[in-house]
């Protein structure tokens, strides 16, 4: 469903992606792990055209991702994104955040969208917070609203860019719980994360990225439990046993 073939990307003189080839099938949950600065987030941001790429090709359902082409709107309405820092619209209520895209981008009928918006907030456990503004919500609540906002677009896939990295530790569980339910319901997900437990339990496949290349990939359990590559072993050792 999402195909990357030999994708290269540089920021100035620094090449952050040095030929990424990967694919994500429908219904699959793929976790991307790796040290910071390895290019994990850049991959996600290239998939929905928040960043341009220099060489290679990315396609979603056969449609080439080109952030300067009008078709990018089409791709973005099919592939939602959840950000590390939530990026909710602070001047709108939780419900307004959720319905913004369906109402103003997809121009769906108002009553229907509002009903779906409330149902989605209930699904992420925030039915009673519909009228709250983001600054009144905790980080975990904000991120769950952001997930509801992504779902409201009725996307074919959702990209998660370190969705729990900005959260207090005790709030991480709620967000991961919502994500796990989504995965169980068959949502296609690409998740950049440092939550190795989540990757092991929920992901179908794990990609380990370092220095702009995919060093190792495979079924979650085998990559995380029996990493083949020295760099993967080293990374996992440092993440799982920081002391």
């Amino acid at each position: 469903m999402i195909e990357l073939s030999d994708v290269h990307k540089s920021f100035g003189k620094v090449e952050v992606l040095k030929g990424i080839t990967a694919s994500v099938e429908k219904g699959e949950v793929v976790c991307i792990i790796g040290p910071s600065g390895s290019g994990k987030s850049t991959i996600l941001r290239c998939i929905n055209g928040l960043e341009s790429y220099d060489r290679g090709e990315i396609s979603v359902e056969g449609l080439k991702v080109d952030r300067d082409a009008p078709s990018i709107v089409n791709i973005r309405t099919q592939v939602s994104m959840v950000f590390q820092r939530f990026n909710l619209f602070p001047h709108r209520t939780a419900l307004e955040n959720v319905v913004e895209g369906p109402l103003f981008v997809k121009k769906e009928p108002r009553a229907q969208v509002l009903e779906r918006g409330r149902a989605l907030l209930a699904q992420v456990g925030l039915a009673e917070k519909a009228d709250a503004h983001p600054p009144q919500l905790s980080g975990g609540q904000q991120q769950r609203v952001a997930i509801a906002r992504a779902l409201a677009m009725q996307p074919k896939a959702i990209l998660f860019d370190e969705p729990t990295s900005a959260l207090d530790p005790e709030l991480v569980g709620d967000v991961l719980g919502v994500m796990r339910k989504l995965a169980d319901d068959g949502m296609t997900m690409v998740v950049v994360t440092h939550e190795m437990g989540f990757a092991r339990d929920v992901a179908d496949r794990v990609l380990f990225i370092d220095g702009g290349v995919i060093v190792e990939q495979g079924p979650a359990k085998s990559v995380l439990n029996q990493p083949q590559h020295a760099r993967t072993q080293d990374f996992l050792r440092r993440v799982l046993h920081p002391l």
Binding site: L50, N74, R76, S80, M81, F83, N87, G101
Partner: peptide, 10 residues
């Protein structure tokens, strides 16, 4: 991030 969020919903 606000602009990116807006872009990400099309």
């Amino acid at each position: 991030g606000q602009i990116e969020a807006a872009q990400s919903i099309g």
